[in-house]
Design a protein around this nucleic acid. Sequence first.
RNA 1: GGGCGCUUAGCUCAGCUGGUUCAGAGCGCCUGCCUUACAAGCAGGAGGUCGGCGGUUCGAAUCCGUCAGCGCCCACCA
Length: 917
Amino acid sequence: MELAPRLDPRGIEPSLYAAWMERREFHLSPDSVTRDGREPFVIVIPPPNVTAVLHMGHGLNNTIQDVLIRWRRMQGRAALWVPGTDHAGIATQNVVERILAREGKTRQDLGREAFVERTWEFVRETGGAILDQLKAIGSSCDWERTRFTLDPGLSRAVREVFVHLYEKGLIYRGEYIINWCPRCHTALANEEAEGTEVEGRLYHLRYPLAPGLEEETASASTAGAASLGRLPDGRWYLTVSTTRPETMLGDMAVAVNPGDERYAGLVGGEVDLPLTGRRIPIIADEYVDREFGTGMVKVTPAHDPNDFEMAQRAGIAPLNVMTPEARMGENAPAAFRGMDRFEARKAVVEAFKGEGLFGGDTPHTHAIPRCYRCDTVVEPRLSEQWFVRMKPLAEPALAASRDGTVTFVPERWKKVYEHWMENIRDWCISRQLWWGHRIPVWYCRDCGHTLVAREDPTACSACGSERLEQDPDVLDTWFSSWLWPFSVFGWPERTEDLKAFYPGHVLSTAPEILFFWVARMIMAGYEFMGEAPFRTVYLHATVRDIQGRKMSKSLGNGIDPLEVVERFGADALRFTVISGAAVGTDIHLDPQDLEASFAPGRNFANKVWNAGRFTLMSVGEDPVRPLEKVQGHLELADRWIISRLARTVQARTQELEKFRLHDVADLAYHFFWGDLADWYLELVKPRLKGERGEESREAARTVLVTVLDGILRLLHPLIPFVTEELWQKLPWPWASERPRFLMAASWPEPRREWEDADAEGQMAALQELVTQIRRLRKEYGVPEGAQVDVVLAGAPEVFRGTLEEEAQAVRTLARVGAITWEREKARGAGAHGVLLNGTELFVSLEGVIDLVREKARLQGEIGRLAGQLTATRKKLENQGFLGKAPEEVVAREREKAASLQEQVEKLQDKLRVFEGA
RNA sequence: GGGCGCUUAGCUCAGCUGGUUCAGAGCGCCUGCCUUACAAGCAGGAGGUCGGCGGUUCGAAUCCGUCAGCGCCCACCA
């Protein structure tokens, strides 16, 4: 059989994937569950943005999902992975707008309808490229079920949900301060406005007091309020502080804390708001912190959420002084009108200086929110928006976490989730965009009636007028994503798919969308399906660069997974990210050095390839016998490797259950490389050549193929391509009965009867011996190729059983000729090894093997005794026991404790001697 | 201002319920090997008082307290 000495991923991966696809191996119909009664296992993909390109975060997340899906599929579950993409309102609209900008056009030039059509075109052309990229890394999604959050079925679900919630009173329209992106011209949810720490300035502005308050001011001033003072013209002023001086143009009041006796006399008075010619009141409000700044706050209801609330409490109307572009608007004084907010900030400060009202500025760090899409500084803005009342929806979703119906991995996210759910705020769902689900609300131009309907209305239900106008806004992208786990199956229809595949099992995603998406999906699951959409939420690692920075486009520190697949293969990428990301930790990769970053995975895949290549070449194409048929001819190495495989299967299955994918990779790696390749393959070489006779050869062939079959099955979810390629070539006797593909083969059952503690113990000692001989050879400078004779000292148990077989192994692995056993002679030598007359090596094994074993035995013994000791002591501290038990029983316990104590100490002394030796 | 996490070899990190993986892996480094599966490899080796201090325990990288440094999330302090 001709196989390349190096794995060529490009040579096998695309064709294998095509073969899987052609045979529809990833596809599953509801019949498999409803008719055949198979237990489902369902993952619904976190839909990437249509316009996105694959990045390492996707690479990791989708590898994780594919590992879980492939593993469950092999376990016999009806494993379904539903793929799809998200229309990503703002993100996509921005991309298309940028394209238009290059053509010198704006979306307004095109008009709404043409713009949306243009966006659809764009999405149809380039959208979904990311799905092809997911295929490149081996994702075994059921592509026949690919959905899009804006396709007709999902749009129907969205509309149903909106109307349902509206009718239930959970959707309302209201005027509030929302986060407004002046560049995207839309409202943002709180979660979409990301705060960044900024070293800014706090400006102190002086507002002259209106006449009539002189007396109170003077007395407050002498009482120590540094914030009050007198202008050269004799007027009194107070000082307020702000990070955004331009908003003072919209000030409607100044507020102090009602309990602040310094300013008690001022409340009810007025100040002359500079630059505006307006006179505004001084009010009292609990919100004001008298310790911060001057203890006086300017109130700008239209441009700050807290000020808005204060103004509402005081019955003061807001005054909006900005345009949607965050320029100073018509309500601002003429001198500032049209200025950008940052220009206006400077201008206002200058104007205050000009009037002698500037009280200086001080450095001040604070968080300013930015648009998560375009990074523009968000402006709080008063406007009318649609909201979802979240509290009632949150209740069952919170309970689900508390009672363990939904669990989080790693567990610490449970707390984060619950904290957010307990303090949940209403969700602003309207967006002033064109790309997205249109809000199903119409206003009657004649009678002002509001219609909310599942089907587009043609006439007003109140007055019959046909002059209806639909709300211009669209819904937040997440308003369709939160329905994803059931809308992909055809909800609100009661489809077969829904019956078979809802609820799903695992959701794997990035921690940063826990609130955006995960929490809301759970809420929607309860509200519309009556149960949570999945049981386990796996929050995966964040992919960072070598400096620990999150990979991002703007930093330019990203890694293109397709380049990695191209250069090293999908298997290399998959194995690297899985073994690099332990539960709860991040993964660090170097974008500057892909070779170094992906070497672990690449090297391992190649190792698997070569071990397979060796097996196929040396075993030949004649079918091997089943294991039972060679049972009587198994040698130590055979029994050992089978036992090791059995244990690895056992451990790996357990780790997978706990989502410990990193450990799974680690275990499989060490079994494959450390046990199978380094030891078993080496041991079996002479046997495969027939040097030890036909029986030995047949046993070796069978065991080798059996073990390789097992480990390939185990490894398949991690590195599906190289395992599939090799597995298909294994010379099984029952080749005709097995499934066409490894991916459809069964997960190996843990086989207790294969475990063989004796073989493992003997083999461990043998390995130790071989390593010692190799070390000694090196130490004494025995040439690589030269053979030495070994004189063994001590009585290692290794050679008590099948002496010849084991001696043979040592000869094979350590290039040893004759092995003789001269206990007394070597003991006299005293050292671990001594080279005699050039070719004869003395190896004293007592100092090596037996010591290791004795130490372990001692530790075990100490553990057992210490356990008893602790229990006995507890008993002796128990008042109930001391009071009620007969004297002699208590005495006996005391004796027991003392004796145990003594024994433990004795053993510990002994252990110390061993460790010292 | 609250909440969470991290600190183990030169680098990136494992180490789950304290003791049979207990001081580990990969990369890097040193020495010797193109040994008929693999130089993307093989064999051997150097390298760490597990962030500091204190405590619990027969026994602590592991549990508790505290200090220091780093990181993340949430929050309206103008």
